[in-house]
Write a protein that binds this DNA or RNA. Structure first.
Lengths: 176, 176
DNA sequence: GGTGAAAATTTCGAAGG
DNA sequence: CCTTCGAAATTTTCACC
């Protein structure tokens, strides 16, 4: 399988990895849809200066290309009793592929984990975890450290959510 | 203003802060909508065992109550050229209200900042920042440290996004 | 609360410049 | 690549359990 990738021409790689440059209208559509995906196509068209059919086609195309991943509802964390956000830094002693696979699978399967990144530098992994209360966090923590061997785990608790958005800052010129 | 809060009865506080307990069907609806908000009400109703009118009413109610905040489109970060995610830890020397207000306003206004929390413990603030490349990060960093006086800023760069979701783990029993 | 069906909107594709 | 137009599907409301 790796051979296939290594043998791919730059052009082929480009087809897979680099989407076309989005024009100003597509970028506007993304900005609008990231803010409110419940708008009708006609309304979005109005805001970006298009009638509904071309606007609809552009949206369809960006969905087909995977630029628009999905439409979701955002829920108020506190209103459903999830009062605690925790940033967890993990250092792993073991850096083998097998270990990583096991760790990644275990952590990905935990619904409390909303974000999970492999990092450069002193911390090996960062997690953002959401739970109802300290007791739930303790249960989560035990589950985490019992899943695989970890060298160090640091939990930092959020006191106040000052900003949290899902809308990416659509660049003036996208995708090199 | 604080007097008002301190004088509020538990019942009054409860009215403001604790929404009704969601039943099993409402929780199912939230789970479905957090995964796919493009489904028709009829389809959602099917999945949770309801016909479309009652399902629609429950969704309307949860929107009115602010449990469902909004519907948004999620966009692929890499496909629009935003290759870099950074977790930024900030220690502030100054802990005055005025300083916090200024810092919170400045950081909230930066579109690169997707999450921004005030923390307990050794780190005062945590940010998750998304930018196109290192040069953009450098520009962001300079903007950040020039906005207000900071004691210490640590940037940790993500190498790989292993998991990232917006769907909260809807608890079996919500909102105490 | 819930059901079923009619009325109002919206989506999506065809025809054409 | 855009506009107009219309059929099909969906959302939303209403009368009734």
């Amino acid at each position: 399988m790796w051979k296939k990738v290594l043998l791919m021409s730059d052009a082929a790689v480009a087809i897979v990895d680099a989407p076309r440059r989005l024009d100003a209208i597509d970028r506007k559509i993304l900005t609008v849809l990231q803010d409110d995906a419940s708008l009708s196509v006609a309304e979005i068209g109005d805001r970006v200066g298009l009638s509904s059919t071309p606007c609809w086609k552009r949206i369809q195309r960006m969905e087909a290309e995977g630029i628009i991943l999905r439409r979701v509802a955002l829920v108020d964390q506190n209103k459903i009793g999830l009062g605690i956000s925790v940033f967890v830094s993990v250092e792993s002693g073991d850096h083998s592929d097998a270990w990583l696979k096991k760790f990644a699978d275990a952590v990905s399967a935990m619904p409390e984990v909303m974000e999970f990144y492999r990092m450069a530098g002193d911390v090996d992994y960062m997690l953002r975890v959401v739970v109802a209360d300290m007791q739930s966090y303790d249960i989560f923590y035990k589950k985490l450290i019992s899943a695989v061997a970890l060298k160090n785990v640091t939990s930092r608790f959020a006191m106040e959510k000052i900003k949290s958005v899902t809308a990416l800052p659509v660049p003036a010129i996208s995708a090199a």
